[in-house]
Every structure is written in structure tokens, then in C-alpha cells.
Write a protein that binds this DNA or RNA. Structure first.
Length: 638
RNA sequence: GCUGCUGUAGCUCAGUCGGUAGAGCGCGUCCUUGGUAAGGACGAGGUCCUGGGUUCAAAUCCCAGCAGCAGCUCCA
């Protein structure tokens, strides 16, 4: 007899050599049916695994994260079998799970097209309905290599695999794949699935290697969950800032300048509201503002290190036979400004902010609306300080960053620390000191963080700040980078208390990162229905008929004078059409005025997204609207 | 940059077998003067992405380029 300990602490006597599946059956028929795998002493295994000794045991179902991944991984195998049966010359490479699904990389010269997906899915359904057992077979590494001789991909996989035992899984009509497992017990347990897309992917992600086809699929425990997921994708599509940006006339792109955004008048209103707010915060946190040139002499970029470490991303030009570069970052220009006067320790920390427009040559395939462009404006700043001020300054920046995100309605952040990359300047000691300083600040603020090894900027380590939007998509916004190298390269100095010239430390920071990207993120977060304080047109007066045009114009004038962005619709449309149009343009408030309102000197206010209206005086409305703008709320109700 | 797909009116998209282009929305004019999610009539608007090729004839077929889209790699 053996004894297993279940997750709730209870124990179960079982016959020696019973499988995990049999334990599940002992616990309950429902669990046995739902089970896809088991965890024996925290190790995930197949349900068919015999139990030895007296371990802890947990039955894994697709309700667990682990179970879901196992189900998806098995689904990837079923998809692989389907593809192999349709294209027998297919060579399988690697098929892992990813967030929300899985993919399988295959080597097949004939391109798989979206038109082929229904065929693949149909074959997968056949395989799933057959509900064939998925069987594990183990052999030694040597045997496995022999078995797969001539298959460069799988041979490579074996060589990368850990341990001496190599396992294969097979199911159905002779389909077999090298795989660590575990897998669901049979092909019927791969959930509700759908092939999503196909795209190219390099072998090992290495651009010098062969381009493979990566077929993406998703699978969920139930049809309902699959549909919910597909709806979520639809929702993301509905919020696409590129589409909304065009519909709401906020920005555009032209073939005349790929990756260079045109911000339209309405987009500029949002932009300027954001900038005004950031300026206000900069003042609060003790920053001064500067502005530095877009184009500067090549010599500057050699000195800063950009020439050696960033040249592929830069644009160059010539002025009077002299080489110049378009700035990809604001820091070198800022250093020149710093050097225009002699500085005392009394001035430090010197915090200089700049809404700096930078140009970076991004690869043509990576551009994506406002999220990835070749010209963008950073809400940048550089803090020049003494070494003993570093931690306090970093904490100050962290406070500023969190205050900003909360004001825009983002409450869910996560933080990453990136360390020394291969391509870097400065000594190892400098890097260690800088990295330790960043970690110390994070610990002081008790902020949990993830480490990204080798992901720092070429001049220093960095802390990156990510926010999650309403669809729980993650976006990188802010960054804090600690830099001991640039001040040395530019021979920046300050006079210390002892009258000696010393080198300041430089902290690079951006809060929103890129104004363009942030504008795009806001559009998606609010699906274009921006909070009142950001809305390009905050109110629109809608007339019932021409008879009250005069009163309507007076109302508009009153609201405009009070500082609200107020439009008016005097067209000879019916009121229903005007309301529909205003809703389409996502105007927060509509004020319907007709003879009734004109007579009583009131307005009938209707909110975006609501069917109701309320009749109030213009003054009442103004007071509420002003208050909502002041607190930057997204809630329109009053 | 790489792989695949796409490119027709301001926008979203039809366009059959190769025979010189259509709809809806939007825009303009007029009619309509109305009460909370689209009233009616008429009209203007197109280098069918660009350049080659095949053909009596190309939006349509072929090639190249450009741009966009989905990914890969990279990144704010």
C-alpha cells in the first residue's frame, strides 16, 4: 500500500503502483473526467504515471494554469498531426504554449494560408473526436538521437533537452513527436480550439537562420471560454487607436513619411492637455524646462557614444559640407546646455525637463500606428546630482511616475530592472554601483520588480514602468536610467563644498515615455471616449430647430467663455440625427436646446453613452463640469 | 530588415470570364423646422498605389518597387 497526500492535507490509501488517473477516480468521477495531468511532489506528470512511495499528489484540470497549458500543448500536438497529415512533407520544429494559446513552428515550403485553417481545424476535430490515447515512450538520449537521425530540428531539440531520458508522445495514426510532456490522456481532451494566424518566425529567433512558418492556435476548456476570448480580441480590435484616430480625426499618417505622425487639431487638444498636466507636475517636483536642437554636429554623437553604439538607428545629414545627425535622444544636447555655465553643488540636484522630439530609424516592419514610430516626443528629463543624492532623486521620480499614472486612471503597474547589456560603455564597477543604486531605491519604496538581465541602455541600467489597460494589456511607459558615463564623456563638473571640481551623476527619466505612444494608449484605454478633461470637444449644443439658434449660440458663448471646449450643431437635421452624430464623435455632453429651454433659460443635458437627459441651468452644468475637469475623472454622471 | 496577406471615391467596401468603375457613410445645394441614437431630393467627387510587361483590350494576368496589415527580430 502507498499513501498520497492531497492538496487539502488529507491522505488516501492506494495500492502500490496505482496511476494518478486511478487516484482521480477514487476522489470522484467528475474530477477524473476533468483531469488532464497530475502533480506528484510538485512535478507535472501524465495521468498514466504510476505512483511510488508516498508523495503529495494533486490532480490537474484545465482550471489550473498548469492544466490549461498542458491542454494547449496537447492541442498543439493535435494541430501538428493535422498539418502533417495534410502536408506530409512538413517537418515539425517546436510547439510551445504562449499566453492565451499555442503555436507550432514548422518547416514547410508551401505557405499555409488563412483559407487553409478550416481544413486544418476539420482534421483536428476528427482527431479529437477519435479520442485516441496519447502515449508516452521513453528512451535514452543516444537512442533518441539514433531514432531521429536526419531531422536537424528534432536532433537540435534533443541536444537542448535536459536529463538523460528523452520522451516521445504518440497518438492516432502513427503520429509521434519528441516532447517532454506531460500531455492530456487522450486527443479528446484538447478543449475548444481555433487556428488563429500564421506568420514567419526564424529558427531560434535568429535572423540568419531559416524562416519557418509559425501557426498560431488557441484552445480553451469550454466553447464558452473560447467565445469569450474571441470576443475579447474583437473588443481590442474595436479599440484600435489607428481606426479611432481616423474616425475621430485625431491623427494620420502619409506615404510621404512612414512612421511620422501628423497630429490633427483635435489630437493636438488632447496632446496639449497632457503636456500642460506634465508641466504642472514637473513644476511640483522641482524641474525646470529646456529645449535643445533637433540636429547637432556629428562630433557630439561620437563623443556621447551614440556613434559607436546607436548609429544604425540614427539619421544623418550634411550642412555646408559638415556632417550632422538628427537626435535619437535628448541627453547629449542637454549636456551641452549644462556646460554653458559653471555649476555649484548648491544647484544640485539640477532637474532639467524637455519635451524633446527624437528620430530613430526603426525597421520598416515594426511600425505600428502611434505605438511604434520613427519620430516621437519624449517627456524627457535629466537630473544632474551628486552621488549621495541618487537614491532620493530616484525615489522622487518614482513618486512622480506613480502620481502621473494614477491621474490618467491607470492603477495596475509593474516594474522591471534592466542590467548591463553586451553593447555598453563604462566600467563594470560603474555598472555595479549604478545597478545597486536603482535596486536600493526600489527596495526602499518596497516595489516588487522583475530583473531583465542585459536589457539596459548602452550607458546605464534602467528601471522600466509598465501599466495595464482595461483589457489587461501591458504597455511600457516610464523609464529611469542611471548614468555615470555620459557626464565623464562630456566632462561635466560642479564645484563641491571643498572647492574641488567633481563629476555629477546623470539620471535620465521619462514618465509617459513617448507622447505619441501614450496618446495611442489613451485612445485604446477609453475606446476613444476620453474623459472630460481630455476630450477635444467637451460639450456640443444641439438645436431642435432654427427658431432657437440665437439662444443656442448664447449658451455656447457662455460655456466657451467659461473655458469649456464647446461646439454647436445648427444644421437643419432632426434632433435624433444630431444626437447620433455627437455620440459617434464621442462628445461627453450634449445640450439639447429648444423653445422650452430658451423660455426657462435652461439646457437639457444628455451624457455620452446614456439615454437619459436632465434639465439644468447653464451655471449648474458649468459648476459640475469644471469640478470633473479639475479632478480628471472619467465619470460623466452628475 | 525577414515571411505571408492586402492596396478601387475622404471612410468602409462591391466590381463575375480581361472589354475604361459602383454602393453605403461622409461632403455640397435645396426642400423640410422638428423634442432625445441617423427625414427627403438632387449633386460633386476616382492617376483603380507606382513603374514596367503580356494582350486588339488590364482595376482584373505577370514582374519589380512603395505603403499598409499580421507576425518574427528589435524597441519608447
Amino acid at each position: 500500500m502507498a499513501r498520497v497526500t492531497l492538496p487539502d492535507g488529507s491522505t488516501l490509501e492506494i495500492a502500490e503502483g496505482s496511476t494518478a488517473k486511478q487516484v482521480a477516480e477514487r476522489i470522484g468521477a467528475g474530477l477524473a473526467k476533468a483531469a488532464v495531468a497530475a502533480k506528484i511532489d510538485d512535478k507535472l506528470v501524465d495521468l498514466s504515471t504510476p505512483i511510488a512511495n508516498s508523495p503529495r499528489l494533486q490532480i490537474v484540470t484545465p482550471k489550473d494554469k498548469d492544466g490549461l497549458n498542458i491542454m494547449r500543448h496537447s492541442c498543439a500536438h493535435v494541430m501538428a498531426e493535422a498539418i502533417c497529415s495534410l502536408w506530409p512533407q512538413t517537418r515539425l520544429v517546436y510547439g510551445p504554449t504562449v499566453e492565451d494559446g499555442f503555436y507550432y513552428d514548422i518547416d514547410l515550403d508551401e505557405p499555409i494560408r488563412p483559407d487553409d485553417f478550416p481544413r486544418i481545424e476539420a482534421r483536428m476535430r476528427e482527431i479529437a473526436e477519435a479520442d485516441k490515447p496519447i502515449v508516452r515512450r521513453e528512451m535514452s538520449r543516444q537512442e533518441a538521437l539514433e531514432e531521429l537521425k536526419g531531422d536537424p530540428y528534432k536532433t537540435d531539440n534533443i541536444q537542448r533537452a535536459e536529463g538523460d531520458v528523452i520522451s516521445f508522445y504518440s497518438h492516432g495514426n502513427g503520429f509521434r513527436d519528441l516532447c517532454r510532456g506531460p500531455h492530456v490522456p487522450s486527443t479528446g481532451k484538447v478543449g475548444s480550439f481555433k487556428i488563429m494566424s500564421v506568420a514567419g518566425a526564424y529558427w531560434h529567433g535568429d535572423p540568419t537562420q531559416k524562416m519557418l512558418q509559425r501557426v498560431y492556435g488557441t484552445s480553451w476548456p469550454t466553447k464558452k471560454e473560447l467565445d469569450e476570448y474571441l470576443n475579447r480580441l474583437e473588443e481590442a480590435k474595436r479599440r484600435d487607436h489607428r481606426v479611432i484616430g481616423r474616425q475621430l480625426d485625431l491623427f494620420s499618417f502619409s506615404e510621404m513619411g512612414p512612421g511620422f505622425a501628423f497630429i490633427h487639431p483635435k489630437g493636438m487638444i488632447v496632446w496639449n492637455e497632457i503636456v500642460d498636466f506634465m508641466r504642472q507636475l514637473n513644476r511640483k517636483y522641482g524641474y525646470k524646462e529646456i529645449r535643445t536642437p533637433i540636429i547637432l554636429n556629428e562630433e557630439l554623437w561620437r563623443r556621447s557614444g551614440h556613434w559607436d553604439h546607436y548609429k544604425e538607428n540614427m539619421y544623418f545629414c550634411e550642412i555646408d559640407q559638415v556632417g550632422y545627425a538628427v537626435k535619437p535622444m535628448n541627453c547629449p544636447g542637454g549636456c551641452l546646455l549644462y556646460k554653458t555655465t559653471k555649476h555649484s553643488y548648491r544647484e544640485l540636484p539640477l532637474r532639467l525637463a524637455e519635451f524633446g522630439m527624437v528620430h530613430r530609424h526603426e525597421a520598416s516592419g515594426v511600425m505600428h500606428g502611434l505605438f511604434r514610430v520613427r519620430q516621437f516626443t519624449q517627456d524627457d528629463a535629466h537630473i544632474y546630482c551628486a552621488p549621495n543624492q541618487i537614491e532620493a532623486e530616484i525615489i522622487g521620480v518614482i513618486n512622480l511616475i506613480f502620481e502621473t499614472y494614477r491621474a490618467f486612471g491607470f492603477e495596475d503597474f509593474n516594474v522591471e530592472l534592466s542590467t548591463k547589456p553586451e553593447n555598453h560603455i563604462g566600467s563594470d564597477e560603474i555598472w555595479e554601483t549604478a545597478t545597486n543604486a536603482l535596486e536600493a531605491a526600489l527596495r526602499h519604496k518596497q516595489i516588487p520588480y522583475k530583473i531583465n538581465e542585459g536589457d539596459g541602455a548602452f550607458y546605464g541600467p534602467k528601471i522600466d514602468f509598465h501599466i495595464k489597460d482595461c483589457l489587461s494589456r501591458s504597455w511600457q511607459l516610464g523609464t529611469i536610467q542611471l548614468d555615470f558615463s555620459m557626464p565623464q564623456r562630456f566632462e561635466l563638473t560642479y564645484v563641491a563644498e571643498d572647492n574641488a571640481e567633481k563629476t555629477p551623476v546623470m539620471i535620465h527619466r521619462a514618465v509617459l515615455g513617448s507622447m505619441e505612444r501614450f496618446l495611442g494608449i489613451l485612445i485604446e484605454q477609453y475606446a476613444g471616449a476620453l474623459p472630460l478633461w481630455l476630450a477635444p470637444e467637451q460639450v456640443r449644443v444641439l438645436t431642435i430647430s432654427e427658431k432657437t439658434n440665437e439662444y443656442a449660440v448664447a449658451v455656447q458663448a457662455k460655456l466657451s467663455e467659461a473655458g469649456l471646449r464647446c461646439g454647436i450643431d445648427l444644421s437643419d437635421e432632426k434632433i435624433g440625427a444630431k444626437i447620433a452624430k455627437s455620440h459617434g464623435e464621442k462628445i461627453p455632453y450634449m445640450m439639447v436646446v429648444g423653445p422650452k429651454e430658451a423660455e426657462s433659460n435652461m439646457v437639457s443635458v444628455r451624457m455620452r453613452g446614456s439615454q437619459d437627459s436632465r434639465t439644468v441651468s447653464v451655471e449648474q452644468f458649468l459648476a459640475r463640469a469644471r469640478q470633473k475637469i479639475a479632478v480628471k475623472t472619467a465619470d460623466l454622471a452628475f
